[in-house]
């Protein structure tokens, strides 16, 4: 079945996510205005600068409709900055930075350091070994009991899920390995329909 996956395209690595989605035989639709949200089966929030995206969410009028759609069960996958946007609480962000409070995690922006500290490494996940690319990555500092930890690196959570919301601190869209997108579309997107 073909799913219609929206990719938040205000700023960031939206094109790489769109390639992963279309490679799997689904439709990727860029989301820049509220009208772009209609008829979506799922939504991906890419990496980029979370403070930039936060401002553009407000000016484009997308913040409230996305918040309501996620609350109504829209399957959503946030990577890196996208995970920051979905979090309950942001540490070290800008004080005026928005987040959707869609998953009960606290994240620290750029917790692993600056770009020279960015790294790649193998991680353990629910779908098996996965190669994680961490770029000025946020760290998941705490998770509530409602959150399932689906992947870890060095014993710390890096892939988490709460109901219809999936989030990773790394970049699955940069590896050419679409298994996590497949997991999202097969296991999270369909959740809404059952």
């Amino acid at each position: 079945m073909n799913s219609r996956i929206g990719i938040l395209a205000l700023q960031g690595a939206f094109a790489s996510h769109a390639s992963c989605v279309t490679e799997l035989g689904h439709s990727a639709l860029e989301v820049r205005t509220p009208a772009d949200l209609s008829g979506l089966d799922g939504l991906i929030m890419p990496g980029g600068e979370s403070s930039t995206m936060s401002q553009l969410l407000e000016s484009s009028g997308l913040f409230e409709p996305i918040r309501d759609a996620i609350a109504d069960g829209l399957a959503t996958f946030g990577t890196c900055a996208g995970m920051i946007l979905l979090a309950h609480e942001i540490v070290d962000g800008r004080s005026d930075q928005y987040c959707f409070d869609a998953i009960e995690i606290t994240v620290r922006r750029n917790a692993f350091g600056r770009q020279i500290d960015s790294f790649e490494a193998d991680i353990d996940t629910v779908i098996g070994d996965f190669h994680g690319i961490f770029i000025r990555a946020p760290r998941i500092e705490s998770v509530s009991e409602k959150v399932e930890v689906l992947g870890t690196y060095g014993g710390e959570p890096v892939l988490v899920r709460q109901g219809n919301v999936l989030a990773s601190s790394f970049h699955p869209e940069l590896t050419g390995d679409a298994r996590l997108h497949e997991y999202f579309i097969n296991s999270v997107v369909t959740t809404k329909e059952t």
Partner: peptide, 28 residues
């Protein structure tokens, strides 16, 4: 890196990490 590592040695400054960072600035 200060974190303990049970999975694999982290690799810094790879082409994927460097080009990937450039990807993050798209649309900006």
């Amino acid at each position: 890196m200060s974190q303990k590592d049970e999975n694999s040695q982290p690799e810094l400054g790879t082409m994927r990490v460097k080009r990937g960072f450039a990807e993050m600035m798209k649309g900006g």
